[in-house]
């Protein structure tokens, strides 16, 4: 570890000299104890941002999978009760189901459809009412799984009209209602993630800005000397700006790597479970790029904040 520090410091110094045109700092930032606090803060903020980002990406993957999987699929149910309240016999239900299947067969908007048989229906309802039941005891509805070519609202409306025309006991279930509930919930979660990202950004901006102001007070004498011997505001601002950028780069790299590691751990752990409702968070190249762009964003936010703060403070000097 000890042999790594000088190399790391050297690379940083190089970066810095490159950025400042082989000049280094004119202000004594090296002896700055406040730097570690900012470094830790930026690291924590980046860590939080990665988790928020991972959450959002996973939610997006989840909604996409559900929406694309379900939007073309509908279920037609032949209810056990007619609209007039009359209980239908299993035979009549079968008849009504066949009637509906007949109209579906001729409909060009249908990709394919499948009338579910008793076993299938039994398997579907088994988790709720158990496997030991007979169709004679409980009236069971008829179910037809339909896949549409396109799921436009007009196509759905015309299909509903046709199906209910063929059998008044038929009801078209587009899955939309419960899907919409879930989508609404997901949107709320995404809003929360966005809010976390905003809080992270605002906290970073506030911390950098107050850190820069404190430093300007500490180094007021030095800043004044630079100012009086002809340094432009921009020259002085650059010193603080690069200092902030280096801190942001270091802090956010640490935070981002920790965040990616924790996300990776969650992926591994969730892969071991059997909860199929939660889609796997995949670490695709795009997602990884999104995570790795965080340090860049942190540098931009920190550099801009520092520059703006210094220029504003300098404008109060003669």
């Amino acid at each position: 570890m000890q042999s790594e520090t000088p190399i790391f410091a050297m690379i940083l110094k190089r970066l810095l000299r490159l950025a400042l045109g082989d000049k280094g700092y004119d202000l004594p930032f090296g002896s700055d104890a406040d730097r570690n606090f900012l470094l830790l803060l930026v690291a924590l903020m980046s860590f939080l941002a990665v988790l928020a980002c991972a959450g959002t990406l996973s939610l997006r993957a989840m909604t996409e999978r559900w929406s694309t999987g379900l939007e073309n699929k509908i279920t037609i149910e032949i209810r056990t009760q007619s609209p007039e309240g009359e209980i239908l016999s299993p035979d009549s239900i079968k008849l009504e189901t066949e009637k509906v299947a007949g109209v579906l067969d001729k409909n060009p908007a249908i990709q394919n459809f499948r009338v579910m048989d008793e076993h299938e229906i039994k398997r579907l309802v088994a988790p709720w009412i158990g496997e030991d039941f007979s169709f004679e005891d409980i009236p069971m509805p008829g179910l037809i799984a339909v896949e549409l070519k396109t799921a436009s609202p007009e196509a759905l409306d015309s299909l509903t009209a046709i199906v209910t025309g063929a059998s008044p006991a038929a009801r078209v279930d587009t899955h939309r209602e419960w899907l919409q509930d879930i989508l609404r919930f997901v949107k709320t979660l995404q809003g929360v993630a966005l809010m976390v990202a905003l809080i992270v950004a605002v906290t970073t901006i506030t911390a950098i800005s107050s850190g820069v102001r404190a430093r300007m007070a500490i180094y007021r004498n030095q800043v004044e000397i630079l100012h009086l011997i002809g340094a432009t505001d921009s020259y002085i601002a650059r010193q603080f700006q690069w200092h902030a950028i280096i801190i942001a780069l270091l802090g956010s790299l640490i935070g981002t790597l920790a965040g990616v590691a924790v996300t990776g751990l969650i992926i591994v752990l969730s892969g071991q479970g059997s909860v199929t409702l939660i889609p796997e968070i995949s670490m695709s190249a795009v997602n990884l790029a999104a995570f790795l762009s965080l340090p860049l964003l942190a540098c931009v936010i920190s550099g801009t904040t520092a520059r703006f703060t210094v220029l504003r403070t300098l404008s109060q000097m003669p």
Binding site: G21, K23, D26, L226, I229, G230, A231, T232, Y235
Partner: peptide, 8 residues
């Protein structure tokens, strides 16, 4: 060197 560096 500072004044010269400021003058780039």
């Amino acid at each position: 060197a500072l004044p010269l560096r400021i003058l780039n």
